[in-house]
Amino acid sequence: MDRVPVLKLGDLLIVSIQIDLQDQSVLALQEDLADKVVETGARGVIIDITAVEIVDSFIGRMLSTIASITRMLDAETIVVGMRPAVAITLVELGLSLGGVRTALNLEKGVALLNHLDGARAVTAR
C-alpha cells in the first residue's frame, strides 16, 4: 500500500496526493495527519488534490472526517485544487463536504489560512 507523504512547511502541513486513492491509504493518511498535527502543533493542513481524477463517496466523506479531526486539534484543513469533474461528481453524489474549506490552488489555500489566522487574532483581541 502506498502511503501519502505529509510535508511540514513552517507551521503548515502539506499533503499532496499524487496516487490513485485507495480506501486503505486514505485511512492511513487520516492517522498520519492526526499524529503529525499533534507532533508539530501545526495551525493548518492543506490537502492538494490537483492530481486526483477520481473520487468516490468514501473518499469524499474521509475528507470531511479529516477536516473534523484536525479542527479538534486546532488546525484548519483546506482542500485545494479540486478538478471540475471531481467537484461535479461529488455534487452528483450529494456530498457537499460540509465543514471543509476549499481553495482553488495551493497558493490561495495558504493565503486563506493566513487570512483565517489574522481573523482569529482579531477576534481574540
Partner: peptide, 12 residues
C-alpha cells in the same frame, strides 16, 4: 444550486 455547490467545493 448544484453549480454553486460544485464551485464551492473547488474553492470559489
Amino acid at each position: 444550486l448544484k453549480t454553486v455547490v460544485a464551485a464551492r467545493l473547488m474553492g470559489a
